[in-house]
Nucleic acid binder design. Structure first.
Lengths: 165, 165
DNA sequence: TATTGTTATACTCTATAACTATA
DNA sequence: TATAGTTATAGAGTATAACAATA
């Protein structure tokens, strides 16, 4: 028990935990922002994943949405968009194909590539599923002030841009 | 191949994909915000998880950070903070205990509860690991305008608040 | 040789259900 | 009985490494 450190009070005793390099300026990004952003994104992604509605997972739905937005894409392009590696995307696309929601097509110009398209049945499924899935988020966004919602609206594309960088 | 739908163009042909209820008002939250937020959070969380530096995963680091910020917490409280279920937190705490970074202590008032504290060695590990792990995020935040950074700084706690709701 | 995608394999994260100990 | 935590088990999600087909 003597090896257990006292918890660090939230007011200012956390000096040992910070790096605080001497060259820090106003242009440096505060550790607090970084930690808060990391924690917020991590926790919200966990919470969002809980909102299953039975048929499609968040990852699968996200791929369908990306194709709907961007048009038909190759496996590699999809992996890049979603920030996963090609084998992971192969797995997701295989699932969606077996569910009849996407089709693999060959690219006549490059036989190595696989082009993934939505099937007709994906359109209806996508609309229904996304609406139900988004219900949780919609409900809780409603509890925020309109200023906070506007803030999140502006921040959302920045999160995506960070993910792509 | 005849069952493959044409991809939906990004300009405005996506009417079939939206629900657009007739009772929608300016106070309603736009589907676009919801989808963008969901996608942005999901992709950035994937990207952040890639930034392993060998010893601790993002989840384990997050728990250490929470205890450092909040002080010693029970398993249940930790699970609540991180938006996971108790068995998941038991698993993470067991790993951290075996790594010598936290200690389980009994609560004299309630023998059912387990209080999780940081060990002395966790303090140094936390500082070093977090600094290295945050490097990726710090680097890429630097590429944003200061207005965008301020925006994310304000948005981060909102993400966490959404996760807790 | 380089690139695209797949297969094989393993690990992390998380959940639900059933159980134990304590209140 | 109710609550806190653990154990057992399963499934989703992801990665790396090795492979096949094509460029």
């Amino acid at each position: 028990m003597s090896s257990v450190a006292a918890a660090i009070p939230p007011d200012g005793g956390d000096v040992e935990l910070r790096s605080d390099p001497p060259d820090r300026t106003d242009h440096e990004i505060h550790d607090d922002l970084i930690a808060a952003l990391r924690v917020g994104v991590l926790r919200l992604s966990r919470r969002l994943r809980l909102e299953r509605d039975g048929d499609l997972t968040l990852t699968q739905l996200s791929v369908l949405g990306t194709i709907a937005r961007e048009g038909a894409l190759t496996i590699g392009e999809l992996a890049n968009h979603e920030r996963v590696k090609p084998p992971s995307m192969t797995r997701t696309v295989t699932f969606l194909e077996e569910a009849g929601l996407v089709a693999r097509c060959t690219n006549d110009n490059d036989g190595r590539q696989v082009i993934v398209k939505l099937t007709d049945s994906a359109l209806g499924v996508l609309a229904d599923t996304r609406r139900r899935r988004d219900d949780w988020l919609r409900e809780h966004l409603r509890d925020l002030s309109s200023a906070d919602r506007a803030l999140l609206e502006a921040a959302a594309p920045l999160l995506d841009r960070l993910a792509q960088s």
